[in-house]
Design a protein around this nucleic acid. Structure first.
Lengths: 114, 114
DNA sequence: TCTATGTTTCCATAGTAATAGAAATACAGA
DNA sequence: TCTGTATTTCTATTACTATGGAAACATAGA
C-alpha cells in the first residue's frame, strides 16, 4: 500500500491518523512499554477492554501504517511497535518543527511540557 | 472542549487526528515554514488549492486542537502555528518513544530517516 | 451607505471509521 | 481427528469526516 511512497507527506498524515484515536494511541503506548518483547493480542485486549473484533480492526490499521509488526507464536499473535517507523515519524515532526522552521526549540521537547 | 484535559492521552490522540489528513498536515507545514509571521487564510488557500469552505473546516479542526491560532488583521485572518502545542505533542511522542521505553534512540531523530 | 473582498456558516452528500456479535479460521494438544 | 483457545473475518449499524456550492457575515474604503 505504501511502497516507498513517492509523496511522503500523505504517508505521514496516514501515520498520524493511525495514532489519532484514543484506542490506537493506547495500543502504541502499551506496546512501547512492553518493547521489545511486545504483547500478544489477548494481552492487549485484556488491558484495554476492547472487543476482539474492534481490536483486530485497530491492529489492522496500525499494521497498514507499519506502526505495528505482528508475528505468530503458536496460537498467539505477538505484536510489537515498529520502532523504525516511529523513528521516521518523530524525525519528520522534529524536522518540521525544529529544523525547517525554528518554531520549537530542540531542548524543549526533553521536558514534560510546561 | 479540552479544558486542561484530565485524561491527556485522548487529547494527544485528537492532536494526531488533527494532523492525520494530508490537507491539514500541509497546512501545518506551510504555517511552520512561514513562522512566526504566519499566513492569511487566502494565502493558504492559494497554496493548497482547497475550496474556501473546506479550508475553513480544516482550520476549525486545527484551531479546536489549538495547533493553529488565528488573529484578525483588517479583513484578513492571519493564521499561525501554535508552537507551544506542537512542542507538547513532540515532547509526548519523544517521551513515549525515547524515554518511557528505549524503543527509539534520541540521536536517530536528528537524521532524515534511513 | 454602498460596494468589493475575505472568510465563515449553512446545507447537503458521499465516503470512511468505530464498534460489536456471530461465524469462520488457525493452531496446539490429547 | 476431535476439542479448545486465540484471533480474524463477516455482516451490520451508527457516527463521523471531508468536501463544496451558496448564502451570510465582517471589514475596509469610496
Amino acid at each position: 500500500m505504501h511502497p516507498a511512497d513517492a509523496e511522503p507527506i500523505a504517508h505521514y498524515a496516514d501515520m498520524f491518523a493511525a495514532m489519532g484515536t484514543e484506542s490506537r494511541l493506547r495500543i502504541m503506548q502499551l506496546l512501547l512499554s512492553a518493547h521489545p518483547e511486545g504483547l500478544v493480542v489477548g494481552e492487549i485486549q485484556a488491558q484495554l477492554g476492547l472487543s476482539a473484533s474492534n481490536l483486530s480492526h485497530h491492529l489492522d490499521k496500525l499494521k497498514n501504517e507499519e506502526l505495528v509488526a505482528v508475528q505468530r507464536e503458536g496460537t498467539f499473535l505477538r505484536c510489537r511497535a515498529n520502532t523504525a517507523a516511529l523513528q521516521r515519524l518523530l524525525a519528520f515532526l522534529y524536522a518540521e518543527c525544529c529544523q525547517r522552521s525554528c518554531a520549537v526549540s530542540p531542548k524543549s521537547i526533553l521536558k514534560p511540557a510546561s
